[in-house]
Nucleic acid binder design. Sequence first.
DNA 1: TTGTACGCGTTATCAA
DNA 2: TTGATAACGCGTACAA
Lengths: 386, 386
Amino acid sequence: MITQNHYTKRITLADIARVSGFSISTVSLVLNEAPLSRYVAASTKEHIRAVASKLGYRPDAAARSLRSRRSHTIGIMVSDISDPFCTLILQGIEKALHSTTYLPIIMIAHNQRKQFGRHLEMLMERRVEGLILVANWLFGEFDQLADIRKSQIPMVGVGRDLTASRVRSLQVDNEAGGYAAAQHLYELGHRKIAVLRGPSELADSDRRWNGIQRFAAEAGLSLAPELVGQLSPADDPTSEFEGGYRLISSMIEKGAEFTAVIAFDDLTSLGAIRALRQAGRHIPKDCSIIGFDDIPHAAVNTPGLTTIRQPMEQMGSMAAKWVLDSLADTKSHTTVGPSSLTGTLHLLPPELVIRQSTARRLVDMRATPVTRLSVASQGRARRKKR
Amino acid sequence: MITQNHYTKRITLADIARVSGFSISTVSLVLNEAPLSRYVAASTKEHIRAVASKLGYRPDAAARSLRSRRSHTIGIMVSDISDPFCTLILQGIEKALHSTTYLPIIMIAHNQRKQFGRHLEMLMERRVEGLILVANWLFGEFDQLADIRKSQIPMVGVGRDLTASRVRSLQVDNEAGGYAAAQHLYELGHRKIAVLRGPSELADSDRRWNGIQRFAAEAGLSLAPELVGQLSPADDPTSEFEGGYRLISSMIEKGAEFTAVIAFDDLTSLGAIRALRQAGRHIPKDCSIIGFDDIPHAAVNTPGLTTIRQPMEQMGSMAAKWVLDSLADTKSHTTVGPSSLTGTLHLLPPELVIRQSTARRLVDMRATPVTRLSVASQGRARRKKR
DNA sequence: TTGTACGCGTTATCAA
DNA sequence: TTGATAACGCGTACAA
C-alpha cells in the first residue's frame, strides 16, 4: 500500500459514484457530457452534478491524459522572458490559444543552451502536442530539435529564423524594414546617415543592412564607411544600449558628420540618443534617429521614438495558428502531416511608426515639431515591402 | 481497443523490456536509479540504458504523476505578462525553482477576472503542489482562492498585498519607498514638490502617499494641495503614462510652481517628463523627477531615471522559497503545515537608485550634471526603512 | 537479482 | 438507461 497521503484527499469519480449511488461510468458520462449521456435520466444528471460540485470534484488532468493519450497542451519555449520582444509574442500566442482547448506550457530558457535542452526534454515528457520556439537572440542550432522533429510534433519558430535547424519559422521581413528605415530618413531630406548594424552572428543584422543598402543603391545615396558601426557580439541584450552609446559617442569624437541615425533596434537607439544628448545635440532638430522593433518603451520615451515596428503579437498568434492547423490536419488526415513545410521561412511586413525622433532636415525648420500625446496609434503609416 | 494512434508510437517501459530482454520492473528500477537497482548487474544496467536511449525513451509525466500522486509542478499565475514588473518577478521565481525538481507552470491572466478563474481551475486540475500569484495591478478578492485554500496548497502572493483575500503576501515596503523619495528630493534642496499619487483603488497608492506625508511632517515640509494630483482608476497600466502627462500638463497650465516631482511609478514619470519637456523645462536642471519601481527602461532613458527600486527578482525568488519551504514542511511534518501563516504580509526594503533625473536645487549649478554611462549599478545608495 | 501483480483516476466498450 | 471491466504507462511491495 502507498503511504497514506497527507494532502487533502482527492475527490475522484469513485467518490461521486459512491455518494450519489450511481456507477463510475455513469458519473463520467454525465460530467463529461459525453454523447452517450443522452440516455441518462435528467434527474440522475442533476443529482450527479450536484454531488460533484458539493464535493468539489476536479478531474485529474494526469489520469485523463494518460487514458486519452492527449495532453491538450502546447509547449512554448521562450528564450528570454525579460525581453519585451519575447513577451509580446508570447501575448499573441496566448491570445490565439485562449479560445481553444489547448493550454500553453511556458518554459523559460534564459538564453542558455543547457536550460533549453533540459526544458525541451520536460516538454516532451509532458507530451505536448505542439511546440513553439520564441527566440529573440541567439538560438543557434540544436541537435535536439532533430530528435524532436522525429516525434512528428508540429513545431514553429517565431522571432528569429530557425530554418537552419530545419524549423519552420516566422519573422518580420528584416530587409524590408531596413529599406523602409532608410527611405524614411531619405525622404525627410537626410543624406548623411549613420548606421549602427547589429552584431554579426545575428542573421537579422545582415538582412536589415541589406535592405538599407538596397535603398541606398536605388536612391543613389552613399553610405560613408566611417558612418557605419557594428555592435559587438554579446549574449546580453541590454548591452545593445551601451553599444549604441559607444558607437555614436566615438563617431562624434572623431568629428564624423551626420544628420540622422539608423539604429539596429530600439535599445540601440536609446543608447545613441544618450550619446547625442551628451554631445549637446537635440533630437530631432540636430539629428534624427530611427529604431527597430517598437518595444513598448519606444512610445513613452521623450521624444517618442520613430521606429520600424515588428508585429509581435501578430507573429505570436500566427505561430499559434500554424500549430493549431497542423494539429487539425494531423488528426483528420493521414500521417503525412505538416512535415512537408519543414524549413519554410515566412516573412511578415514591418510597419513604419513615425513619432518624434525623426524630422525633416531643413535649415529653416521650427525649433521643435509639435509633440502630440497619443501613445500607441499615432502617426502610423504603412509601407509594405515585397 | 483504442483507436490506433496516428502519432509516432510512444516508447514505453514495455518496449524497452521487450527489446532488452529484461522485465519491466528491472527496466524501471534501472532507469530511475531506484534504491533497489543496487542489486542489478552493471552490465544489465548498461544494456538497458543503451536500449532506452537508442529507442529514444522518455518517461510519461502523466503516468508517472498519476502513480506517484505528485505533479512536481508549481503554478504561477501572472496578472500581466507584458508588464516588466511581473516579468522580473517571474524571472526571480524561475531562478529559484530552477535548482529544484519543481517545474513552474505559468498562466497568464491578462488582468481579467474570468481568465484568472479559468486558469486557476486548470492549475488545480493539474494538481500543482504550490501556487504563486504574481500581481501588478488590481487583483481584487477571489472567492475561488478560499476554495483553493481548503486544498491546503501552499500559496503566496507577490507584488501586491493580497492579504485581503487571506493570501500570504510579499511586496515592497511602499511607505518606506514614498518616504525615501521625498527625503531624496528634500535633501537636494527641493521644497516645492509635486506629487502624483496612484489610483485610489490601489492600496499601494495610499501607502506611498503615507510615506511621503510622514517625511513631510518630520521635515516640516508642506505639500501644497494644488501640487498633489491623482491618477484616475484604470485597468490599463499604460494609461499611467498618459496620466502622468495630463496631471503635470495641467499643473503647468495652471501656473503651479514646483521644482521637483514624485511620480507614482516609472511609467507615470515618463509621462511627466514629456509634459515638462513640452513646456520647455529641462530635466533635471529646471525640475527633478523621481519614479518608483525601476523598470528596465528607467536606466536606458535619457536622462536616466532616478527611482525607488523594488527588488523584483528578489521578491520572486523569495516567494518561490516560501512555497518550497512550505512544501518541505508539509512533507516531513504533520498536517498542520503552513496554514498558520495565512494572511501574513511581508515587506521588503526598497532602494533609492540615483540617476540623472534628479539634481540639487541651486541657482548657480552647472547647466547639466555630468551624465555617466553605466546602466545598472550606478550611483546606488541604500536607505532601509523600518 | 529479477519477475509478478496491483493500483493511480479516467474513459471507451460492451453488457445488461 | 445504467453498470462492469479493461486498458493507458508507470512504480513498487513482495515473491521467486
